[in-house]
Design a binder for these strands. Structure first.
Lengths: 193, 193
DNA sequence: ACTAATTGCATCACCTGTGTTGCAGGTTTC
DNA sequence: GAAACCTGCAACACAGGTGATGCAATTAGT
């Protein structure tokens, strides 16, 4: 939770710490608080003042990232836009957030933590959007939606790994949706109805 | 490398240590040597006798796992069997190995290590098999084979995550190949040629 | 401007993991 | 069966991270 009204500079510190933690831990998950503090431009004791221990820090990190992910999904209007449009927009947004918070979002959710609640929320929204896509005929009616969702997640994750070329999110999103729906098999020559 | 002729009991120890390391580190990548030793039923000093430090241990772990993965691929006769058959067999074999050595195979390859050489070998064989599949018309001729390979890897990884139901490798492999080639979109009702 | 909050710094005690050594006793190998 | 090898155990030194504290200096809020 964002605690009681924190003073402006304190809030800046917390943000800096969370961002530093993401960057440092993404490279070395076993990095010390000292390293995180250095990256954040902050004294190690300041981290301990805000976060009692490593667990508290990673919890906050996971929660913060999950919140941003939810915002990214909501920005895609999953409930009102046509499924295909929503999926594309959501995918592009999620790619942005996930590339910025890769470590935080890969963090194993502590049971009963806020982050795990948010994760479930995210899964539900995703499942819902996929169901809408299925009702629209975009997804085969016999498909196992849970598997489809997992494949979707996997494609997003894989897109982030090898993106050294720096392709923009829209391009990546298009490829993800295309692969998710059509796979890699031969296409009927684009001539139909 | 498997060192000079190790005495039989010593070789047993090494195996036990590697397996213990896999199990323990898969749960907690930061686990101590002590924990690994306990799981292996061995004294901590014995680990240090065989592996100078943590790095040496994980290197050996990665190499050992990569070797088994290569064997799993070779057992699928990637060069002689029809591509679809080969892909299915290879996928099933790889699933077995990957589920047993998930941590070891997820290990970031040290540059110039033997494991990284093996990894490249694995990638090459995979790429080759995919090319054969493409030449056979299983994969669209315009498809980006590197992306296809990455998707394939991602599908394998995802299949391993949520396999609490304990589905057998053949079933999982079938789903992977099917999704890879056809995606989740609507299928033409099975009637034509 | 005054107050309260926040921070950096120096310092401390403490714990955990690491890597090494020596030796006695058990196991392989030939 | 003898030699060579391997292992467990105990002990040690050492490095490094952790969490806490007190204080002076800075900064935000009103």
């Amino acid at each position: 939770m964002s605690d009681k009204t924190l003073r402006a500079d304190a809030e800046r510190s917390v943000r800096a710490i969370l961002e530093a933690a993401e960057h440092v831990l993404a490279v070395d998950p076993g990095a010390s608080m000292e390293q995180i503090a250095a990256e954040a431009g902050v004294a190690r004791t300041t981290i301990h003042r805000r976060f009692a221990n490593r667990q508290a820090l990673t919890d906050a990190l996971a929660t913060s990232a999950a919140r941003q992910l939810i915002k990214a999904i909501d920005d895609g209007r999953p409930d009102t836009a046509p499924p295909l449009v929503a999926m594309h927009r959501i995918t592009a947004n999620v790619l942005e957030v996930k590339s910025a918070w890769a470590f935080a979002l890969a963090l194993p959710a502590e049971p009963d933590s806020e982050a795990s609640l948010l994760q479930r929320d995210i899964n539900d929204r995703c499942a819902l959007t996929l169901r809408r896509a299925q009702n629209d005929g975009l997804i085969d009616e016999k498909a196992d939606l849970d598997w489809v969702r997992r494949v979707y997640y996997a494609l997003i994750g894989e897109s982030l790994h090898g993106n050294a070329e720096g392709a923009d999110s829209d391009t990546l999103a298009a490829r993800i949706i295309d692969t998710l729906l059509h796979g890699a098999g031969p296409r009927p020559s684009r001539s139909a109805p």
